Simulated scan of single mutants.
Amino acid sequence: MVDMKNEQTIPIWDGCAPTVAEAIGQFQDRWQPYSKTAKRYPITRLVEELIDPAVAAYSTTLPMRCLGHIPGAGTGVAFSEIIRLVGLDAMVRLQRQLLRAFVLTEDQQSAVDQQFIATLESLIELVGASNRKQPAKSQVRNTRLNGQRLQGFCRFCGELAELASFAGGSDAPKVDDVDEKLRLSNLYCVAHRPKLPSEAWNPAYRKAKRAVAQFDLELARLSRQCAVRGTSQAKSGDVLVDGYIFHYMLGQTLQPADEAELRNQARLMVDLKLSDRKKQILMLQRSAFNQSEIARRLGIERQAVSKAVASIPEIFRLDPAKHSGQ
């Protein structure tokens, strides 16, 4: 992606079709007064004006096998009309389902397919950002909370930050707010809030804070790998680690748009201490190396291999390779 996600930015994926990328850029330039709740400036009207023509023009360049994976394409129903019919939340889910189906059934890793995936991802980003877009002046659920504060994922996982969760209708973030102070974080979820109701430091926050660099590293690797599933993309600098990420993600159905799930997966890897050494061991195990051979290959003691293997949860283990040239 060309940009990080925040309340003022709609990420456009590298390789997105130029006509769609240009339309998204124009959309963002003009979207300031628009939101899904605004009566004078409903955001679907801006989608209709700018995005519909771009999607329609791009659709005419695509092979038939692609058309069924863009909502409304080839049916005479405009992209914005699908949004009006199902809502922005459901539109994001629909787009993710269609993209996942394309990757699993049609993706040939051709230049056309790579541009198609980048374009679909960019359209998903646009709809997701439109769903999160707040009115120019807004409050959260009739409280004094400022709706313009960034509302998104927790810094440490795939759960919504307290403010975003509360704005979405959940009362979980204020369960302990007996004094109705509503000090809701726009950066951390309930589980990772820095302070507990007792005002003591939250151990989960401190643990995640210490490992934030590893979390970011694992998230970047997973995101790169699921963007191009057919080849190794983790770019860890170690062929065994890259191989592990590649084969592990083949057993998943995650796509880059599944940001919450990817963030939670990275959090799980960090919390369960799936180190790069353990990834190396798992990859060699997949290739039928025994523990003594693994130890010699990695230059460590066999007992260290045995101890590492015993500590790896089952969910991270790989299926053995079927030795037919793999």
Rank of each mutant, 00 (worst) to 15 (best):
D3H: 15
I10E: 00
G15A: 05
A17D: 13
G25F: 08
D29L: 13
S35H: 03
T37C: 08
A38L: 06
R45E: 14
E49P: 01
D52F: 06
A54P: 05
S59H: 06
G72D: 00
E81T: 14
I82E: 09
R84E: 07
G87N: 01
L88V: 06
L88R: 03
M91V: 02
M91P: 01
L94Y: 00
Q95D: 09
Q95R: 09
A101H: 15
A101G: 11
V103P: 01
T105I: 06
E106N: 10
S110D: 09
A111F: 11
V112N: 10
A118S: 14
T119C: 08
L120P: 03
I124E: 06
E125H: 15
A129N: 10
A129V: 09
S130I: 02
N131G: 15
R132I: 02
R132Y: 09
K133M: 04
K133L: 10
K137C: 11
R141F: 05
L145T: 07
L150T: 14
Q151M: 14
G152K: 02
C157P: 02
C157N: 04
C157S: 05
G158Q: 01
E159I: 01
E159H: 14
L163F: 04
L163T: 09
V175N: 08
D176Q: 13
S185R: 03
C189Q: 05
H192W: 01
P194L: 04
K195Q: 13
S198H: 03
E199V: 11
E199R: 15
Y205C: 02
A208K: 03
K209Y: 09
A213C: 07
D216F: 01
D216C: 05
S223M: 10
Q225W: 01
C226N: 06
V228H: 14
R229D: 04
G230R: 10
Q233K: 10
Q233I: 07
S236R: 00
S236P: 01
D238Y: 01
G243L: 04
F246T: 07
F246K: 11
Y248L: 11
L254H: 10
P256Q: 02
N264F: 00
R267F: 00
K273L: 10
L274W: 00
L274I: 09
D276G: 06
D276C: 02
K278P: 02
K278G: 04
I281E: 02
L282Y: 05
Q285V: 07
S287V: 09
E293W: 06
E293N: 10
I294C: 05
R296Y: 12
R297L: 00
R297E: 15
L298W: 00
G299C: 09
Q303H: 10
A304I: 03
K307M: 11
A308R: 04
A308M: 02
L318G: 01
K322G: 08
H323I: 14
S324C: 12
G325M: 10
